[in-house]
Design a protein around this nucleic acid. Sequence first.
DNA 1: GCATCTTGGTACCGTACGGTACGGTTCGAT
DNA 2: ATCGAACCGTACCGTACGGTACCAAGATGC
Lengths: 217, 217
Amino acid sequence: MAPVPDSDFTPRQNEVLASALRLVVDGGEKALTTAAVARAANCSKESLYRWFGDRDGLLAAIVAHQAAKVRVPSESAGKLTAAEFRARLVTFAEDLLSVLAGDTSLALNRLAISQASREGAPLGRLLLERGRERISTRARVLLEAGRGQGYVTFDDPTEAYRTLYGLIVRDAHGRWLLGQPPGGADADFAGQAMRAIEQFLTLHPPTVTQGSATTRD
Amino acid sequence: MAPVPDSDFTPRQNEVLASALRLVVDGGEKALTTAAVARAANCSKESLYRWFGDRDGLLAAIVAHQAAKVRVPSESAGKLTAAEFRARLVTFAEDLLSVLAGDTSLALNRLAISQASREGAPLGRLLLERGRERISTRARVLLEAGRGQGYVTFDDPTEAYRTLYGLIVRDAHGRWLLGQPPGGADADFAGQAMRAIEQFLTLHPPTVTQGSATTRD
DNA sequence: GCATCTTGGTACCGTACGGTACGGTTCGAT
DNA sequence: ATCGAACCGTACCGTACGGTACCAAGATGC
């Protein structure tokens, strides 16, 4: 039961964390004062401190709370045709762009980045381990499945994933983080995703030419 | 002569801004209090406010000050051989990685990102316009010169540049911003640069096979 | 009814920081 | 020599925020 305990937080605490997340998404870190959280969540500051220790603990809890609900479709990827494999890649790319462009992702990344100068950078590491690492794992599983079928070629899955990431995201994430809204060509996630996969498969071509369903442009 | 007026700041003011930059590089935004700046720069808070208006003005001045000293090698790129063109691309890639991994770049990007939630996000726009835009312009000039000679193929220079950026930087900048130090394979800027250019030229191959100095694998 | 626990609400404290005022000093202009 | 501007150093003020203490209300057990 408890398919995923969300985190080690009680329902009430998760409720409070959701409120806090709303605050930080809307107003940035500056808006995330303990008093504001208490008011927004209808709880007392004393409870906040009892549950999360201090403000940093609250921040960490917010990140953990959100990271816990990053559900990876698990992919399974038992047996795929070449076209299915390609479609999975495109879907992954679209998902990645959607997530990175989302309000919560941007807000949490900004939060973690702004705290990254502090020694240890626990928030950044949390985000890397529970966010990016999960996503990259999903992609690597998919890539290795494709390689097993000869749909794609590479030596190091991590290296291949990083190239894939670069082709999908390019400089968009950086621009979004700096406040430039996803407009213009950015917004066409589907088109960006297809282009990226096209390029990726050009760099890591299949060993067997099967189907060649994709028309070059 | 004042080879470049740095900005519209007096030498003394630039000196103060340099001190402030040191502060923010070392200790993050939290360390950048007006009192600390005044102490580090041996100037009075009153002067800070007279010169820069308020704290936000100071932040903007710091960004402008640093952006002003981003010197682009201008490239000129009059007539290049294929090998020279390729070498220029590799150099650009190495420069880009070096800059992005540098302390000041990371500190200023963190600063601008942490303020990006504020409406208008003036710091982020400043960084985009005076930092990234300058760099991308340099790259686009180079790319168009290469296209003129048939060393590379693309339709839209901006699109091509973004792909180039993605292949060079991949997810490294994001990881660095989150506090993960440039270690392991990341640190090999030269190797990363060569790989990226190799991949880029594979995606945007020359129209004329001249020299073919690079062994494709 | 009574004790105990948890939680919400409010008041409070200490501090840190943005911003201002003022005295003293240097330095160039006249 | 004198004036005035710019500037440094410091003291000061108001506020906002992190963190704590205290009290009231409901729940639970006996």
